Computed example of a mutant assay.
Amino acid sequence: MGREADTVHTDPGSIQRLQALVGELRDNAKVRVHLRDGSSMTGIVAVVPTVQSFVDAHGTEGINGVVKLIDNDRPDWSAMVSLDTIFRVEHLDSVAYGTSQT
C-alpha cells in the first residue's frame, strides 16, 4: 500500500470516526458498505483495516485507512475502499469479532 491517499484527516473527530469503522470491519465479516456517494459494495473483509499516516496530493500528512473486500463467489474481484468514503457498515453475517485466516 502506498503512502498517498486522495483525502487525509487531521481533526480528532474524523480520526475517531475512522477508528470506530475499524472496529466494525472485522476479519472475515461479510458486510455491505454504504458509501457517501450513495453507492454500496458487498464483500468479505479480507484483512482488518488500520488507520495510518498518508500524504495527500498537496503534501499534507494526515490519517486515513483502507479496507480490502473480497468475494468468494467472484474470485477475480476485490475492492480497496478508503475508510473515509464509508457512510455506514451493514453486517450480513454473525461475525462480530472476526476469525483468524491462518
Rank of each mutant, 00 (worst) to 15 (best):
R3F: 15
E4N: 10
A5W: 09
A5C: 11
A5P: 13
D6A: 11
T7W: 03
T7L: 07
T7F: 13
V8C: 04
H9V: 00
T10L: 12
D11E: 11
D11A: 12
P12Y: 01
G13F: 06
I15N: 02
Q16D: 13
R17F: 02
L18T: 11
L18W: 09
A20I: 01
L21Y: 08
V22Y: 04
G23F: 00
G23L: 02
G23E: 07
L25G: 04
L25K: 01
K30E: 06
H34L: 15
R36M: 11
R36C: 02
S39H: 14
S39L: 07
S40I: 00
T42C: 01
G43W: 00
I44S: 06
I44R: 10
V45P: 06
V45A: 04
V45I: 12
V47Y: 04
V48L: 06
V48I: 03
T50D: 14
V51Y: 01
V51E: 10
S53G: 15
F54I: 03
F54D: 09
A57D: 10
H58E: 13
G59P: 03
G62Q: 09
I63D: 08
N64A: 05
V66G: 08
V67Y: 09
V67M: 11
V67Q: 07
I70Y: 02
N72Q: 08
D73L: 09
D73E: 14
R74E: 13
R74N: 13
P75S: 03
L83C: 08
D84H: 09
D84V: 08
I86P: 11
I86A: 12
I86N: 10
H91T: 06
D93T: 03
D93F: 00
S94C: 13
S94D: 15
V95L: 07
V95S: 08
A96I: 12
Y97T: 13
Y97Q: 13
Y97L: 15
G98L: 03
T99D: 09
S100N: 13
T102A: 10
T102R: 09
